[in-house]
Write a protein that binds this DNA or RNA. Structure first.
Length: 262
DNA sequence: CTGTTTGTTTGCCG
DNA sequence: TCGGCAAACAAACA
């Protein structure tokens, strides 16, 4: 699940639960998801409080009272769960809190990662992440995409270009902007890019304000043609043609062949 | 058993 | 050195 809107929801969830709480102990149930030295993870959290949250793209950052930063990336299936008595099935790292509650990093497929660092800026530099797509200005988008020759969809998925855009959002943007996912970036016009940028902002805004609850997205959203939502539609909202799917850059890609010509 | 998966990293190639 | 590309990673679920 976790693309930008979900990670923003997790950030808000963290703010409403574990923020300002003190960590008694960190339990590393599966070291696979911990990128750093476990001793460093303990050092910056145990006997410390969670003081501040930030998010860039799909990365969540928590500054602790040790003045260091905890980074959480959710991979394909990660989430957070705050609980007292009912632990999630796949809690890989669990922060046991002084207040008797626990915050688990629940990650069934183990693609998620937890890491520690000196600052958010350091992480952003190290990962070469762009500005968060939700906050990005046109000028940066234009700069990041210009000169590229690859297919447009994989470029939108590139976190150095538009941090936070994931697979369904890229499909949603390209469908609403009526552009084929395999279109070469250098063959698109300024007008195409302005449409892509506008749709990106619009979709992210909608998804974040609906707290990434897919079922509540507008009926004409292409996401309802992926078989993920209760609506489970098959036809394009624009032209009524049946949507098709293919692989682009190795990723499942849904398009309307009528609306998205190469 | 087979195929699929909302993400990122790595290594090869030009 | 850089961009493009495909494979690898891991495990649950249908």
């Amino acid at each position: 699940m976790p693309e930008l809107p979900e990670v923003e929801r997790f950030r808000q969830y963290f703010e409403g639960t574990a923020l300002h709480q003190k960590v008694a102990q960190v339990e590393i149930a599966d070291a696979k998801v911990v990128s750093c030295d476990p001793a460093d993870l303990k050092a910056i959290t145990e006997k410390h409080t969670f003081d501040k949250t930030e998010r860039i793209g799909k990365y969540l950052f928590i500054t602790t009272s040790a003045q260091k930063v905890l980074m959480i990336h959710f991979g394909m299936s990660g989430s957070l769960k705050y609980y007292r008595d009912d632990p999630p099935r796949f809690g890989r790292v669990i922060f046991h809190l002084d207040n008797g509650f626990h915050l688990a990093f629940d990650c069934p497929r183990k693609f998620g990662r937890i890491d520690v660092g000196d600052s958010v800026k350091d992480f952003q530099t190290k990962k070469k992440l762009s500005t968060d797509a939700y906050k990005m200005e046109w000028e940066e988008f234009d700069k990041n995409i210009s000169g590229r020759t690859g297919m447009i969809k994989p470029l939108l998925l590139n976190q150095k270009i538009t941090a936070g855009v994931g697979n369904w959002i890229a499909d949603e943007i390209l469908h609403q902007a009526q552009i084929h996912p395999e279109a070469r970036a250098n063959h698109l016009t300024k007008d195409d890019y302005q449409r892509i940028f506008q749709k990106m902002k619009d979709i992210l805004h909608t998804a974040v304000s609906l707290e990434a609850n897919y079922n509540e997205y507008p009926d004409n959203y292409f996401i309802h043609r992926r078989g993920w939502t209760e609506l489970n539609l098959k036809e394009c909202a624009q032209c009524d043609a049946e949507v098709t799917h293919m692989k682009v850059g190795g990723r499942a890609t849904y398009i309307c062949e009528g609306c998205q010509k190469k």
